[in-house]
């Protein structure tokens, strides 16, 4: 009975691993194959690995390096702007006596009910009119619509963990409000800021709907650029796999680094909006 149960558990665990790891692993394997190896039937698990696809994707005529750059500019720009706006706001919501604080919190939540498609239609018209289509500022500003509420909520939860005596002690010690915020409070939420930065970066890197509508020849993140390798006439399978792996790399690295905090980030973010892409 006991052994039967542990056998069942092991089996389920194995299925779980295979089901969730395989698609990713398979993409990685394919990215090291030649076109023929990918198209082989039955699928080949053992083959002679080659870097040809990566060479082509990175340094070939259709190099995606500009697109990787584009993705980084968008994600870093969004992250920096979001944090500059979110940290002071979160501090005020978490710590200060503001009338209508609950209303403000509810407003932030409510903004997340609006489906992204409902945001992009009006923004498309606005950006087209002011000539901001295919610009970094256009896409970064609209990314605030999902990154900012998420970052505020996550940061509020970190600010709330700090005892109130911190501000009081600093005040008695002669520090003004801004000095207190900068010297006493911010250093204590460094960890929270790091986690928030990771999540905002992830969400910006992964965003797709806004990018599809707003991107062009200048601003063209990897998630959009991968379609370069898929066309009606032919699909460049190996290169597509290589691009997918390159696009996965930064977020997987960040995700693994932040894995301890990921549940908190996901729950705060998703209740309050961030998990939407």
């Amino acid at each position: 009975m006991k052994t039967l149960r542990s056998l069942a558990i092991s089996l389920a665990v194995l299925v779980f691993i295979i089901a969730w790891v395989f698609p990713i692993l398979w993409s990685v394997l394919n990215s090291f194959k030649t076109e023929q190896d990918i198209l082989a039937y039955p699928p080949k698990f053992f083959f002679e690995p080659t870097l040809a696809a990566y060479r082509e994707v990175l340094f070939g005529s259709q190099s995606i390096l500009p697109n990787v750059w584009s993705s980084f500019v968008i994600s870093i720009g969004t992250t920096v702007l979001t944090m500059i706006l979110a940290i002071p706001a979160a501090y005020a919501l978490a710590r200060l006596r503001v009338p209508g604080k609950r209303g403000a919190g509810f407003y932030i939540l409510a903004t997340q009910m609006l489906p992204p498609v409902g945001i992009i239609i009006p923004y498309f018209l606005v950006l087209r009119n002011i000539g901001w289509m295919d610009t970094y500022q256009g896409i970064i500003i609209i990314y605030l619509s999902f990154s900012l509420p998420f970052a505020i909520w996550l940061m509020v939860s970190y600010f709330e963990d700090i005892p109130f005596e911190m501000e009081e002690a600093a005040a008695v010690d002669g520090a003004g409000r801004l000095t207190t915020l900068w010297r006493i409070i911010i250093p204590q939420v460094k960890g929270g800021i790091a986690v928030t930065v990771v999540f905002v970066f992830l969400n910006a890197w992964n965003e797709f709907l806004f990018a599809v509508v707003l991107s062009g020849n200048t601003v063209r993140p990897v998630t959009i650029a991968m379609f370069n390798f898929v066309s009606v006439e032919q699909t460049l399978w190996a290169q597509l796999a290589a691009v997918s792996v390159i696009a996965m790399l930064p977020v997987v690295v960040l995700g693994v680094i932040a894995q301890q905090h990921i549940v908190k980030g996901l729950t705060v973010g998703a209740v309050k909006g961030g998990g939407r892409r």
């Binding site: 009081e168 002690a169 250093p187 204590q188």
Partner: peptide
């Protein structure tokens, strides 16, 4: 006067030491 301008010393129940 605000606390920051009063020049009084205070010891808090929780000590309120700056952990960083």
């Amino acid at each position: 006067l605000d606390a920051q301008h009063r020049d009084v010393a205070m010891v808090f129940q929780s000590y309120a030491l700056y952990p960083h």
